[in-house]
Design a protein around this nucleic acid. Structure first.
Lengths: 152, 152
DNA sequence: TATTGTTATACTCTATAACTATA
DNA sequence: TATAGTTATAGAGTATAACAATA
């Protein structure tokens, strides 16, 4: 007698699966990014900057759904490697504006193909149509939890 | 000029979304489970045991897709709270067999409704049909990465 | 030799509290 | 008074390396 009881199957609940699959995906990303000496958080910053251009740290933290405090050491490391720059804001002297350097931009571009292949490996169990379906659903869910691209 | 360039939108890639949404889901679970003094890992163990019954630690680690070494302290805590028991295997003296206690089983049952509500809150952006679609896709993906229910 | 469980250790991610300098 | 960035710190998740007991 193993493998069934009279309770709902939370092990198959969407929330449970999202958390576990997120963990597995993060592991996969970590292994892949480690080859380029990047953490998941660092890569998230690079990708977000590549898409959104110049932003303040607060806005950047929102964009990648991490806490602004935890963003500080991540940016420190990226600045050390000259992949991003922190510069003072033109008018608001509280702010420090973050941008990709030439080198950072090049790295994101170079990783693009390999990252796509890595993703394909992880999704190998799903045929193309289902992958697109999954992607659309995840985009909608993500948009509901992360503030969209706004002004400034 | 912000919000577009000529590169593929990795920020919207499935792997990226899975990792970020997994993180957000884990945060949501952590906040919810914290009210019951449970970590995500502890809850994963309880749920897995509730479904699969008596298993060894190696098999248990596989079932919830965590490393067997990291399972040790998690089980220690659960044993301290008398939610699970570790007992010697009947014939193989290397093994220690893990089971839910009466108290652990009761707790999982008590959390069932609240956990379902928590999940609904997180998925509020998707209508029912899409939620089921998402759940099916995630189940298939999860099954491809985690060994299914086997003998013993 | 291989397997089960374990310890020690380190890095990443996340969260709470409190501080500074500006607005 | 509120906001942008920061520091210190702690807990949880994951990973590598190495070990004892048993098969």
């Amino acid at each position: 007698m193993s493998g069934s009881n009279d309770r709902p199957a939370f092990e198959r609940g969407t929330g449970f699966l999202l958390a576990r699959l997120g963990s597995l995906t993060a592991r996969s990303w970590t292994a892949f990014l480690g080859e380029h000496r990047l953490s998941q958080g660092q890569y998230a910053v690079l990708v977000a900057l590549d898409r959104h251009g110049v932003v303040g740290q607060r806005r950047l933290a929102e964009l990648i759904a991490v806490d602004a405090r935890n963003l500080v050491p991540v940016l420190d490391q990226l600045v050390d490697r000259r992949l991003v720059e922190r510069r003072p804001h033109d008018t608001d002297r509280r702010r420090r504006v973050v941008t990709l350097t030439e080198e950072g931009s090049t790295l994101v571009g170079a990783l693009a193909v390999a990252a796509a292949e890595e993703q394909d490996r992880f999704l190998h169990a799903l045929p193309e149509a289902e992958r697109e379906q999954l992607n659309r659903l995840l985009q909608r869910l993500y948009a509901a939890h992360v503030p969209a691209d706004g002004p400034e």
